[in-house]
């Protein structure tokens, strides 16, 4: 293991109560984030990656509910905290970047008000100091004319500008770790690249650790130190970014990488799709949830749920993992 983890998630399970029954949305997921590290969390929609992020700061919306698990931030157990204590963690110790800049800013309050309210909640600052910091943050996220931006209402800004404000809002109380839930998904491709550059720059400046939730392997490859792959509510592989891309051990990870468009060397693009679709939480097959789509599935895959085991430098949950591929 590495040094003392900043964030430690152990055996986290999340259920969806529906008509008295609990559907497991996330099943026994454990991972660590080291100080200053960027952990990429990838998976398809519905794999459980976003609820895992929301569960860390107790932001699940009923009927979703954390059913088990321990969450510790520098040893402080977030899962045992009262709502009052949790308010001091949110924003102050754990920042959260929301997905859709069009809906995540309050439409009737000015940018400056939202920024200053957030800082005032967590930092002891006078009003002129607050104003100065707000101006400073607008500049740091790369927006021109900060005085004007602070007075502006969200609708006066473009999608990319709003996402920069969302990032400033998440970072302005200087959290120890930031959870970014699909921070680029709702943006134009050209803006996406700018946003990633900005996040990388701010990450370097502040040294804040980050959990980057995305379905885009390209984003992960650019940003993350390590990658966790989610499938149907389970963590199925976690490894350093380099190892994961070079030698994925879980067939699903390999399929995911294969499904990313890559130049085929003859001027075209090659995409190999994984056949079938991820099962919903209400229709999980027994055994390994991936076996119906898996080219390597064998009889035991249909009955045994594979545990996460150490494989080489990473961990994977597969009974018949792919052999390690070394750099040729």
């Amino acid at each position: 293991m590495m040094e003392q983890p900043l964030l430690s998630v152990r055996h986290l399970s999340i259920g969806l109560s529906r008509q008295g029954t609990q559907l497991p949305v996330l099943n026994d997921v454990s991972f660590d984030v080291a100080p200053g590290e960027v952990l990429g969390v990838v998976g398809e929609s519905g794999a459980g990656k976003s609820v895992a992020g929301a569960a860390i700061i107790d932001l699940l919306v009923p009927p979703l509910r954390r059913t088990a698990g321990e969450i510790a931030l520098r040893g402080d157990r977030l899962d045992l905290m009262s709502p009052r204590q949790m308010h001091r963690v949110r924003g102050k110790r754990v920042g959260f970047i929301f997905q859709d800049p069009m809906t995540s800013l309050n439409p009737v309050l000015s940018i400056g008000k939202q920024l200053k309210d957030t800082m005032r909640t967590h930092l002891r600052l006078g009003s002129s100091e607050l104003h100065g910091r707000a101006l400073d943050w607008v500049t740091r996220v790369g927006l021109p004319n900060p005085e004007r931006i602070l007075k502006a209402a969200p609708h006066e800004l473009s999608g990319g500008q709003r996402q920069r404000i969302v990032i400033a809002l998440a970072l302005c109380a200087e959290p120890e770790i930031v959870i970014a839930d699909e921070p680029t998904t709702a943006l134009d491709v050209s803006v996406q690249a700018q946003m990633l550059d900005l996040m990388r720059l701010l990450h370097k400046e502040t040294g804040t650790a980050m959990v980057l939730i995305t379905h885009d392997l390209g984003v992960v490859a650019k940003m993350a130190d390590r990658v966790a792959v989610f499938y149907a509510g389970r963590l199925i592989e976690i490894a350093s970014t380099r190892a994961l891309f070079q030698s994925p051990r879980h067939p699903y990870t390999a399929g995911l990488i294969g499904a990313t468009p890559a130049p085929d060397g003859q001027g075209g693009m090659q995409v190999v799709a994984i056949p079938g679709a991820m099962p919903g939480v209400d229709a999980l097959p027994p055994g390994c949830a991936f076996h119906p789509r898996c080219p390597r599935a064998q009889a035991d895959c249909r009955t045994v749920v594979p545990p996460l085991v150490v494989l080489g430098t990473g961990e994977a949950a597969c009974l018949h993992p792919l052999p390690e591929r070394t750099a040729a």
Binding site: V61, T103, N106, P107, L109, Q114, D117, T118, T121, L169
Partner: peptide
Amino acid sequence: HSEHIRFARARGLSETRVWFVYAIRN
């Protein structure tokens, strides 16, 4: 139930502020 209220909570704003400033205005 809107995203911006969830985001306001995620930033640690107090329940009082969330309801009486951020939600009421809308």
